[in-house]
Design a binder for these strands. Structure first.
Lengths: 189, 189
DNA sequence: GACGATACGGAACATGGTTCCGTTTATGCC
DNA sequence: GGCATAAACGGAACCATGTTCCGTATCGTC
């Protein structure tokens, strides 16, 4: 038999409650808070989403998929592979920066978030690898850098964005990507 | 009256126990563990080090001071301000990378570590600012970047070092710093 | 409407930080 | 040395949070 109707309803309610809680308190929002928002018991959360990572992935799956889909699209549209790469990384960084605590969770090393990390990598590293490869092939980016390390670095640079007004994650990501260019790089300010 | 002798002894014991616990379990080592290592009650820890940040700062103070002192020394010795900057950042990154969980704690945003963050910034940002300023003055580094953001970025890039063998924090820091060079940058591999 | 499978709720448990206070110990004084 | 006092100690108790478990309620079917 398929899932029961109430279960399906609860799963949806939970996703909305979790999304709201994540906005309000970050992806570490207490389980009890999420349960309370959804009007269910904590047991119900664990039944639908055995680990916190499952819940986070479920909440952000759409956006991760959009980000993944944006890669080939940008490569097709943009003026150059390098431009596509820069733009895509901007999309990726936007996503991380606007999700309170997500960048931290991704890199926390906390076992709770291991499968979250894995999902992001599985889904986005191949996309990034294509962009990076194209930019290398076009002679704009140095070869020898792996997509996974670039993603890791960009993800790291997103940490703390919005906490300290003196730190602009996108600006530093720009510096990093500039450091990947083959000389001479654009004299970006 | 000065501090009691047993108190002084305990403080020392605690510092050693904490250092050992930090090596074994990272800077988030449970308070009870540290207390057990030192053979004291948890209350004793809180009396000597009201916040976890105080304890961490006490444990690493020497090394932070050494790092701060290395700045002017490198500037005096190195072939160029840029070389001094690169070398100093390497020293700083080494420090963070070898202290399990320290980079994460610094950027966690957790209130527990706020004063730790503040101590690092107070102590090291001015040093970095001097190096950066010298490298800008010598025409090797683009102007317009603040020491605090560079430090923040470098600290961020140290997160996860040693957890994923595919990620080499120093390599990515190298890319970042290369991105700060005035064109043309060295064609570093 | 009754029955079995499914799902639910929330108490109970585990873990880790933090507080508090009764007890112990060091120190200065006689 | 013995005592009074302040300082310091230990660890139980408390709080917050994640996680498990099972008695109860609900759904879907016959």
């Amino acid at each position: 038999m398929a899932k029961r109707a109430d279960a399906r309803r609860n799963e949806q309610t939970l996703l909305e409650a979790a999304a709201a809680a994540f906005v309000a308190a970050g992806v570490d929002a207490p389980v009890r808070d999420i349960a309370a928002r959804a009007g269910v018991g904590v047991g119900t959360i664990y039944r639908h989403f055995p680990t916190r990572a499952d819940l986070v992935v479920a909440v952000y799956r759409h956006q991760v998929e959009e980000c993944a889909a944006a890669g080939p699209a940008l490569l097709a549209e943009a003026a150059s592979p390098h431009a596509a790469l820069v733009h895509w990384i901007d999309v990726f960084a936007d996503f991380l920066v606007t999700k309170h605590g997500l960048a931290e969770a991704l890199q926390s090393g906390d076992a709770t978030f291991l499968s979250l990390h894995a999902y992001f990598l599985d889904r986005l590293v191949p996309v990034c690898a294509d962009l990076l490869g194209a930019a290398v092939a076009s002679g704009e980016i140095k070869q020898g850098y792996e997509a996974v390390e670039v993603m890791h670095a960009v993800g790291n640079l997103c940490i703390g964005a919005g906490r300290d007004p003196r730190y602009d994650a996108r600006r530093m990501i720009g510096v990093l990507i500039n450091g990947l260019r083959v000389p001479p790089p654009a004299a970006a300010g």
